[in-house]
Amino acid sequence: MIIVNNVRQSVENRWRDLVDNGKRFTGISPNVDPNTPPDWFNANKFRKSQQLGRKYYGSLGFGQFLGLMVMLYHTEAYATLTSTGQSSNVQKLFRRYLSTLVHVKHWFDFDPFDVNSQAYQSLKYVRGLHRQVASMLTTKWERMEGRDDLPISQYGMTHAQFAFTGFVALYPKQCGLHGLSDDDFDCLLYFWRVIGYCLGCDDRFNLCNGTADEVVGLCQLMFTREWYPLMSADLPVCEGGVEMAKGICLAMNQLARFISYDVIMKYWYPILSIDNKTVELQTYSEIFCI
């Protein structure tokens, strides 16, 4: 019980630091050197995490897809994504999220600290894109680091980490991850600690920094306090974000016919205890997916 209480307090402290301070720090931390593994990096553990990622790629992708959709319920995340003009129609959404799948595949396959690897080049490209968008929006919105909430902040990067691993951390079996040992589960979280670092997450704000219990606890707080109120609201707080999530499903349906906004929410609403929302499936193809 003492351990549980200590973990709970640690998670609460990290959450408060993230909310109170993480929004004012740029998303690409000056404390991160993407060319050099951090002191805590364990090459063997990371290689194992990559092997597990390749083995469970489909199940991980299922959880990640929900996370990427839910991220759009947040007004600022939606504003950031729409600022590039790469999400204005279904065709652009398809290219954007297919590109995301390719990037993640590279991260699972190659060494992120080898400057000649596809993973390193991919991460370098994503960091550059984040830096470019952040600079543009910081100027446009007249924000100042250390004083104002920033676009693509450390807080925003933690949101992005949650999009990729939050639902997998909270609901591994519901994502299709059965039979994982505690060590395997820890390795899957460790993967996103490393990738988060490579993308610019400061250790102070890195969602996956800490024990598995701490990471799951922080994910639970983040979902309960941020995403659950947005998802369960009778009227969408960010209507444009919900419509973009539906557009992503329509776009990615070209890759897998089971991808449908209604099907996904029909599955996840009961799991997430969103009891005030019901979904009526309209077509045989949607019904048979469930």
Rank of each mutant, 00 (worst) to 15 (best):
P151G: 06
S88G: 05
K105I: 12
L123A: 04
L101E: 09
P151D: 00
D109Q: 10
L150Q: 08
T138N: 15
N116D: 00
N116S: 07
H103A: 03
E142K: 14
S122H: 03
I152T: 08
F94E: 07
K140D: 11
A160E: 15
D109F: 09
Q132P: 00
Q154G: 15
G146D: 07
N116W: 01
P151E: 05
V102F: 02
W107C: 05
Q86Y: 13
Q86C: 10
H106R: 10
R95Y: 15
R143H: 15
R96H: 11
V90R: 11
Q161D: 13
N89T: 00
T158I: 02
Q161S: 14
L123Q: 04
K140W: 05
Q161F: 07
A119Q: 06
V115N: 03
T100K: 08
Y97H: 13
Y120Q: 04
D114P: 04
Y97R: 12
R147E: 09
S117F: 01
Y120S: 02
N89K: 02
W141V: 05
L101R: 15
R95W: 15
D148G: 04
T139D: 03
R96I: 14
T100H: 02
P112F: 01
Q161I: 11
Y155Q: 06
T139P: 03
L93G: 12
Q86S: 10
H130G: 02
D114C: 07
R95H: 14
T100W: 03
A163S: 07
V115I: 00
G166V: 10
T139A: 03
P151F: 03
A134I: 05
L98A: 11
S122N: 09
S88N: 10
G128W: 05
Y125M: 10
K92L: 14
G146H: 01
S87K: 09
S122T: 05
D109K: 07
S153E: 07
S135H: 01
L129S: 02
L150F: 04
A163F: 07
L93S: 10
E145Q: 09
M157A: 11
Q91F: 14
H103S: 10
G128A: 01
N116E: 12
H103C: 05
M144N: 12
A163V: 05
K105D: 14
S87G: 13
W107F: 09
K105P: 08
Q91Y: 09
T100Q: 05
H103V: 13
A163E: 02
M157C: 06
Q161R: 12
S99I: 04
D148N: 13
